Simulated scan of single mutants.
Amino acid sequence: MNAIILRTGDYQRSIAGVSLLDRLVVELSRGGAESIKILGDPNQPELKRAVARGIAFEYADGVPTLTEPTLVVRDDVFIQRSDFTMLIEKGGTLQGPDKDPLPVGVLEDGSLENLKERLAGLEQHAPEGVTQTVRSQDDAEQAERLLWATMGSKCDGVVDTWLNRPVGRCLSKLLVWTSVTPNQVSAGSTILGVAAGALFYLGPYWPALWGAILLQVSAVIDCVDGDIARVAYKESELGRWLDIVGDNVVHITVFVGVGIGLWVQGDVGALPLGISAGIGALISFLVVLRGMSARHEDNARLQSFLDKMANRDFSVLLLILAAMDQLWLFLWMVGIGVHVFWVVALIILSTGGKARPE
C-alpha cells in the first residue's frame, strides 16, 4: 500500500534526536508502506535516518486525488511501525486518547480535503504501540518519554532490568543527541571489560575489586549501544557482531583473569579452572554462531534459550564476591555453569530438527 504524509508546517520538532518527519518515513517503511510521498516544499533539513537506511521517498506539490486505498498520515503525530502495519492490513484509523481518531488512516479514494471528517467515518482501532499527537515541545517530550519506555532487550535479566539499563538510559538519552554511534559505545564497553579482566590478573584484593567495579561499569555501558541503535534507527550488522564478539572477549578475559589472579595468590587449582571457564566461554560462542546459521526453527529455539540465560547479571555477583574476597566461589560457579550452558545449547540445536514421536 502507498503512503502519503501531509505536512502541517512545523518540520523541526525532534524526538530522541530524530525529527518527527524522519521518524514517520522510517516507521512507515518498516510498517510495510510500498511507497512514501511527502506533500509540500522539499526545502527543509535532510531526513538523515531515512536516507541512511536507504528508504525511498519523494516530495510532491499539491494535493492529489486518491484512486486506490492509501495510508494517509499527518506529520504532527508520532506512530510506531506496528500500528502502520495494522492499518495496512485492516484499514480504518487509530483511536486517540480522547476517543477521536488520530490524524492517520486508510482512505479508499477521493480527495484529501476535510481529512478529519473523512477519518471520523472509518473504523477505529486501539493502538498497539506508542502514539502521540505532537503540536508542542511538551508533546514531543511526552512522546520521547513513551518511546524510551518501550526500549529494552529480551535478554535483559533482573540486574539489567533494575540497574544496568536504568542507569545506562541516562547516558543513552544524552548520547542520542550527539554524533556518537552505537558501534563506538560497543567498542568502549569492550575496552572497559578487557581492562577489568587485566586488573583481575594482578591478584590482590584491591585490584580485583576495582576490576569488578570496572566490569559493572562496562555492563551498564553495554546497555547503551542497543538503546541508541534502536531509538535512532542506527542498527547495523557490524554493530550486531561488535556486540556479540565484544561480550565474549570480555567474558573470556575476565574468567581467565580471575583464575590467574587467584593462582598468583597461591590457589594452584584456580589457573586450570579459569582456563577451563575461558575455553567454555569460547565454545559457547561457537555454539551460538552455529545457531545463528541454523534453520529458522532451530535458531528460534536457541534464541529463546539465550533470551532466558544470556545476560549480564553475573557482573553484580562478581562484584559482591570480590568485595567479600571470595572470588574462588565465582570461579567455581562459572567454571561449571559455562560448560552446562554450551552443552544445553548444543542439545537444543542438535534435537531441534528431529521430528517428535507420535
Rank of each mutant, 00 (worst) to 15 (best):
N2K: 14
P45K: 02
L6G: 12
L306G: 09
L107R: 06
I221S: 07
A277F: 02
P166F: 04
G291N: 06
A143M: 13
T161S: 14
N164Q: 12
S276L: 15
H251G: 02
L47K: 01
K37Q: 15
D307W: 02
L171Y: 06
D61P: 04
D41Y: 02
V217G: 01
R118E: 09
Q142M: 13
V288C: 13
V18E: 07
L147R: 08
V106L: 00
V130C: 03
V250G: 05
T190N: 02
A143D: 09
G259P: 13
T351N: 13
V334Q: 08
D156L: 06
F200M: 14
L21Y: 05
D225V: 06
L209T: 07
D267S: 12
I228S: 04
L282A: 15
P42I: 03
G54M: 10
E68S: 15
A143E: 09
D156A: 10
V256G: 12
I191S: 14
G352F: 04
A3T: 09
V256T: 14
V258H: 02
I15P: 11
L66P: 02
L122A: 11
W342G: 01
D76E: 15
V73Q: 05
G62P: 03
N114E: 10
L122F: 04
G17K: 01
R312D: 07
L286F: 11
R165G: 08
V316Y: 02
Y201W: 14
E237C: 01
E117H: 06
R49G: 11
V254S: 06
A196Y: 04
D98R: 10
T93P: 08
A212P: 08
S172G: 06
L331N: 03
F305M: 00
D227I: 07
V264Q: 12
N183I: 00
Q184Y: 03
F255T: 15
L71R: 07
V51I: 14
G335K: 04
R230V: 12
P204M: 02
F255V: 15
A187F: 01
S14C: 11
M86W: 07
S136Q: 11
D22Y: 01
I275Q: 10
L302H: 01
F84Y: 03
P204F: 02
L306I: 05
H296N: 14
A52V: 06
Q216W: 05
K154A: 10
L122I: 03
V18R: 02
V63H: 11
G152E: 06
V26E: 06
C170L: 13
C223E: 09
V104Y: 03
E144H: 02
I279F: 00
I213S: 14
L66F: 02
L112C: 09
R356E: 15
G259C: 11
T253G: 08
L306N: 13
S293H: 11
S186K: 00
K308I: 03
W328H: 05
D307E: 15
Q124D: 12
T65G: 09
L122D: 00
G269P: 01
L192Q: 12
D98L: 08
S19G: 13
V63D: 07
N43K: 12
A52M: 07
Q265K: 14
V334Y: 03
G266F: 00
L321D: 04
A322Y: 04
A149R: 08
V250M: 01
A281P: 05
I38M: 09
G261I: 03
A149K: 10
I347W: 07
S276C: 11
T150S: 11
